[in-house]
């Protein structure tokens, strides 16, 4: 029962909650590193959403096994391939963001947003 519920609706609700944690954290957290982590959580939610699209009940890896024919027996590999790219994108975004934060930390010595704004002006 719980499995069907999970497969039909619940998993998408979980993804939406995970996704909304992102904007929520970006808006409410005062610390810039926490904002960045919220952004990462949001990207992970999108990745999971795509992976769920590729999932199939009772199917196996998309590598041809002898004697096993028909598309129903293999999961869809495309979302996984797409998400590899998305993971790389998310990695590089995080890298750029951390580099920017390093600069700010070196100059102002603080990453709390209100304090930072006060010291900037």
């Amino acid at each position: 029962m719980i499995k069907e519920l999970l497969a039909s609706h619940l998993v998408y609700w979980l993804i939406i909650i995970l996704f909304m944690l992102g904007p929520f954290g970006i808006i409410l957290q005062k610390n810039l590193v926490k904002k960045l982590m919220a952004m990462n959580i949001m990207q992970v939610a999108v990745i999971i959403f795509f992976l769920v699209l590729g999932q199939k009940e009772g199917a196996t890896l998309p590598i041809e096994i002898h004697g096993l024919t028909g598309a129903a027996n293999y999961i869809n590999p495309l979302p996984h391939a797409l998400m590899l790219t998305a993971i790389v994108v998310s990695l590089s975004t995080t890298g750029v963001a951390l580099a920017l934060l390093l600069l700010l930390q070196k100059k102002y010595g603080v990453l709390e947003e209100d304090e930072l704004l006060r010291r900037m002006n």
Partner: peptide, 15 residues
């Protein structure tokens, strides 16, 4: 600082 803000908001947009 402006670029970091743009990065956060822009990534929300891209996601």
């Amino acid at each position: 600082a402006a670029a970091f803000r743009y990065l956060l908001i822009g990534t929300v947009g891209a996601s």
